[in-house]
Design a protein around this nucleic acid. Structure first.
Lengths: 354, 354
DNA sequence: TTGAAAGCGTTACCAC
DNA sequence: GTGGTAACGCTTTCAA
């Protein structure tokens, strides 16, 4: 018996079609793969094959093809379970670009413990399942992990990490400069950079945005001011009396020469500003301008906060393009690509009054 | 030559190990698959095999295994490109549960156009690439699409859609009741249900939450009040003068016997309430209590809004469990599972004052 | 304990 | 134009 079964129904393979049409397997696959004309197969025969395929509900078996071609047609997105940064647009950019190349994205969350244990590799890396890996901003990737990955001989691209090779990430340094210069251009001189304390090693974006801000302020001959809010509230209870808003309010109340504009590292900091300002009856933007970094302009906030957008959609697409390049010509180091930050004007910035 | 090459380096297969150790292929795979003891293979031999595997950097080829077993070890998440609802916790629940069963999640976004064109099936459905499909809340799934999917003989689970079979979704009707009863329990009598107009067919959750609210109010002998905000602002310009907040404010200002509590359909509606209340100098919760539905308590808002949480993490896990069941015993209809809504108390609800 | 061999569904080369 | 056939890497049954 040459035909397997599935759920009681016969499994339809290329062979089934051959049997059904009375042709050979080769002829069938030639037609199915579009080599029909090249092989000068009769129109009539082609029709017969296609008709049979449709009739029988033939679906090619991807595993079999993969076994033969050596390509699975998938890329894996690897990220740490606890600290995943996966905005919808990033996901969209990745799947979209992969799909345009007839590939799929496979998700592989990695428990953090694994990253520390140098002897253990996650299953997706221990097997030969994907054509390439996209490693997404694993905080403080251990060298041992990178080493293991390199030994795999599988093409790898890094996402949202500022490595010199094989990475795609937003140009946050220039973003920081842009944000500061934008406010300077509006006439502000007392501009605060607002970040947060974190419990883990700094992400490059935390450094670069701030440094870009510093550079712009320096160039303009303005005094740099920086404030760090307490770390994000980890638990429910702490959220109830949000320390972060409190710190922000205290700062705005007590600082001599109160800033007239703020560059916020991310949405979380911007929200703290909005709340503190509300509590202090400071009007935005009349009394205080606010700009932030984020992956999109979030309309649901009801306040269109002027946003320096880190183009995650493009980051995703570029990452795929870089990965495909590495799959095509393996073994070469590709210079990293930076994606420009883009300003989306909102309603929270205006020239300083008074 | 029996060994293929990849990037100039020899490709390591089970055969390589056999050659390297001087054993047969079968012995090697027996050891590799843990059938060693069962096959009573010498300890010493086992060691030799494992050692060689480690040394050569052997990684089993998933395609080859899949070809033989008929299982690829992946499930596809199918969703419409435009209206994807993919909270992180849902994704986490899915990947987590799949990973516990040694499976992966493959993402397959489907352009909306495809859903309308009954003759066209997305690539992932046209091929035999995954063991099962998880179809996520595709707004208004056309019957023709369901029909096509059923013809595939591939196990399917639906997510966030209230179908009687093969679906997993939050119990939004009971959620609506819970929310209303919670506020009633606090002593409120003037409770508003707040939704939004939408441009597409209603999602079941929009109906069920409201109906649950209605039922609870009816049971308590209280008057039902409902307000629909204008549709979400689609463009930047419209966001600048947010109609939604305006409508909300007008309502709160002008309604006789202003509600003392509001049940909001989702975060977006809750934010409109928060902003309108601010503008009207209404204190929350003293002057106005607020509860909403969402997939988690969003701490970044700085206001811990009392949240009726739709347990997307569990929904994801249950969907996988249901899918696995369908993969194991194909062809049977499985009754859908509803996931209970869970209350997470915040700081926006209190007994009415005055 | 170990080895030989068949087969999974596709592809592609090489005869006819 | 068409039809054998080997190969991809793995699993599993059956002999030895």
């Amino acid at each position: 018996m040459t035909e397997g079964t599935y759920r009681g129904k016969p499994r339809v393979t290329a062979a089934s079609i051959a049997v059904h049409t009375g042709l050979s397997r080769a002829t069938v696959t030639h037609v199915l793969n579009g080599h029909a004309d090249e092989q000068r197969i009769r129109r009539e025969t082609q029709q017969k094959v296609l008709e049979a395929a449709r009739l029988l509900g033939y679906r090619p078996n991807a595993s079999a093809r993969a076994l033969h071609t050596g390509k699975t047609g998938t890329a894996a997105l690897i990220q740490s379970l606890s600290a995943a940064y996966l905005p919808e647009r990033l996901l969209l950019g990745l799947t979209e670009a992969l799909s345009e190349n007839n590939m799929y994205l496979t998700l592989a969350e990695v428990p953090d413990a694994v990253l520390d244990d140098r002897s253990y590799l996650p299953k997706i890396l221990r097997e030969h399942t994907v054509d390439g890996l996209i490693i997404n901003r694993i905080v403080d990737i251990p060298d041992s992990f990178i080493e293991e990955v390199n030994r795999l001989n599988t093409p790898v691209t890094f996402l949202n990490v500022n490595r010199p090779w094989d990475a795609v990430y937003p140009d946050d340094f220039n973003g920081g400069r842009m944000a500061a210069n934008y406010l300077i251009g509006l006439g502000h001189t007392r501009i605060l950079y607002l970040g947060s304390y974190v419990n883990c090693p700094l992400h490059y974006s935390q450094i670069d945005r701030r440094d870009g801000y510093r550079e712009a302020m320096f160039q303009a001959g303005l005094q740099q001011r920086e404030l760090l809010l307490p770390a994000d509230p980890p638990t429910h209870i702490e959220a109830l009396n949000d320390k972060r808003v409190q710190v922000m309010r205290t700062y705005l109340e007590n600082t001599p020469y109160r800033p007239t504009a703020i560059v916020a590292y991310e949405l979380a900091e911007a929200l703290a500003v909005l709340h503190a300002a509300h509590q202090l009856q400071l009007r935005i933007p009349q009394d205080l301008s606010l700009a932030m970094f984020h992956h999109h302009m979030d309309f649901r906030l009801c306040v269109p906060v002027t946003t320096f957008c880190n183009g995650m959609h493009i980051v995703g697409r570029e990452a795929v393009s870089l990965l495909l390049q590495k799959i095509d010509t393996p073994g070469v180091l590709v210079p990293s690509r930076m994606v420009p930050i883009e300003l989306i004007e909102g309603a929270t910035c205006s020239p300083p009054t008074g």
